[in-house]
Design a protein around this nucleic acid. Structure first.
Lengths: 206, 206, 206, 206
DNA sequence: CATGAATGAGCCTTCATTCAT
DNA sequence: TATGAATGAAGGCTCATTCAT
């Protein structure tokens, strides 16, 4: 039960799921990619359904870590601070999504449509993200640099939706670019990021 | 080849896919739900992969029709016009999504993770929606009621993302409420709709 | 129950079986080729197994008729008579096989490997042919122009084998030539015919 | 992937095909006869179509080996030599066909009517046999003990036809005798063999 | 009489999972 | 501990046959 093998299996599974989706990936695929016997898989994971949870765990862990690294968790005290903070988070996410194109692809083909259970979990993650965002907004209201009548919960939901649009765009681009790691400059992503920020802070009206 | 049977199969398939997802729905499931022999299915559709396309066709047809009904295609000439128009579209979508909770669920479990082909198709639909939205924004700039320096394409993408957030929320709610047609008042959805509009037109800053 | 329809079905079945074989021909194929509903088939024949018997009946009827036409059934009284008779029979068979390339093909793909029952029947037809040939030989011995110590039964079997070689060659050629009726000159067939006769009457030794 | 299992499957398939024919044999039949799960079949062979090729390979291998054992490949130098050689080959074939009655049955029900592809292959085998026979005849002409004006190709075809008659007779007898290995004395076969030889070397005329 | 919609038995094939080595 | 041979549940799909219209 070498811990390294466990990691390798998670990585291989992540790769397979991102490339072919959960349902079109067989245990044999994962084992073959790793060069191990497919019986070995079952020494590390209960069953096929089991691994996806661990892949998701692992992915979220990596994403959160990456976000935490780039982002001071310090709360913004002014609108400009917040604006900058949002920019940093957006850039951070962009960086993560583009550092490994398999991430957005996996979120699609490896996460959605697998299971009612997993759906629930993903919804719950989204809830957390919403709550986090709502917290930021709440903080902004308290500090006085955001509109007092802001519906924080639903506004947070809307903001997260814009981020999702980014993830989806990445997933599509990743699909177009194939699975290779050739990082085309994330120009599109950056522009979307800017558009989101302007929408939030400047509105669209003249 | 009664056209009615064809419709029934599409409906039953829609129902099954929305409830259990594409991969956990067998042809026998669809046939059983309809009370027909499973061989009959193959008199109307080529194979399992074939029906999903028709279900998607049908769904999009219904959605577009519903949207068209509620919405004057007339272009907005003032910001208030546009604001109202956005409100109508949002309400329209809300109404559709809540009229049949299977719709958002199907978009998830019956559409994502099926196929590279279908993914491509869904992306392409998203593209169209983006382009449509961008067109509205473009028009607004020309008419002078929207910021001239708006990045229409990416802003459209962001706006569509917010709508997606609504779809996702619906899908989750539908899951919680089961597949029955008990229309809990779409209070949440209405509030999200308002939050999106305020975000677009008023921004979040004080 | 028009008799003509019955004939048409037999013809269409013959065509399908010759082209695609018994197992790769569906009732729908036969009906479609004829432009009738495939339910109609069952008004004329019990089931799929039933039709093959009628096709075989029909085919043998046609072959025997053709042979009878070309051949005086009169018994040969001299070796030269017999030689000529054998030649006529051989030419007759050649003509039949080449008049419709589907015949040898059908004997293969529509007759062998269908059924234990049909195998038995074909064997029985072969028996009759053997017996007929043996009768000719017997007659020749009685008349004194054939060797008295001839094993008529097995010699007849051997002679029939040579004819079978011709049928097989035809079947292969027919396959090569496609199903069209382009009668390449049956040069090969004529030469085989001659070789058989020389083998019978002159032997191979110098 | 025990090689023995592979052999067992080939044998079982051979048995089933010989008894019931290709189309009336299911993978489950083969597996059941062997007492293995039917999934196991697919660990050793691609699909149902795949196995028939291997069965044919195996059968031809065995036949050729048996023929080679009994037969000096040395060329005949005199007519008597050749006569003896033909006798040995005929006896060899007889022995093979009767050593396992499933062989002639398989050649019928397991080989004909399966596939255009397999038909082609069988024709090609027949070609080789014809060519081999023609070679012997050619050699006889060169050595001077066969008629110089012999049409070697078509004569070879005719000779092969007589052998086929033997195969067919065997197949029928095997069917009558059931699939058991009770070797009724191949009296019939021997007599056919003699009749063929006399036909070739002595002709039928007095 | 003709039709073709409906049916379900039956078969091929995949693949997650187990377990003896 | 690692392996991969074996397994059989499960599901997609075909097509001969029936029968209401």
């Amino acid at each position: 039960m070498r811990e390294e093998t466990r990691r390798d299996i998670i990585d291989a599974a992540f790769d397979c799921f991102a490339t072919n989706g959960y349902h079109d990936t067989s245990i044999a695929d994962i084992a073959t990619r790793l060069g191990i016997g497919h019986g070995t898989f079952y020494r590390y994971f209960q069953n096929k359904r089991d691994i996806i949870d661990h892949v998701v765990d692992d992915l979220f862990g990596r994403v959160l870590e990456a976000l935490a690294t780039d982002n001071a968790p310090a709360a913004a005290e002014t609108l400009d601070d917040y604006r900058a903070q949002v920019g940093r988070i957006a850039d951070g996410l962009t960086g993560i999504l583009y550092s490994d194109p398999r991430i957005p692809r996996f979120l699609f083909t490896g996460t959605v449509g697998v299971d009612a259970e997993l759906n629930k979990r993903m919804f719950s993650v989204l809830d957390s993200a919403n709550a986090l965002t709502a917290g930021y907004l709440e903080h902004g209201i308290e500090r006085g640099y955001l509109r007092a009548d802001l519906d924080v919960d639903h506004t947070a939901q809307a903001v997260m939706g814009m981020l999702l649009a980014g993830v989806i765009a990445c997933a599509r681009d990743a699909g177009d670019r194939g699975s290779a790691d050739d990082s085309g400059p994330p120009e599109q992503q950056r522009e979307l990021s800017i558009a989101i920020q302007r929408l939030m802070f400047d509105g669209i009206a003249r």
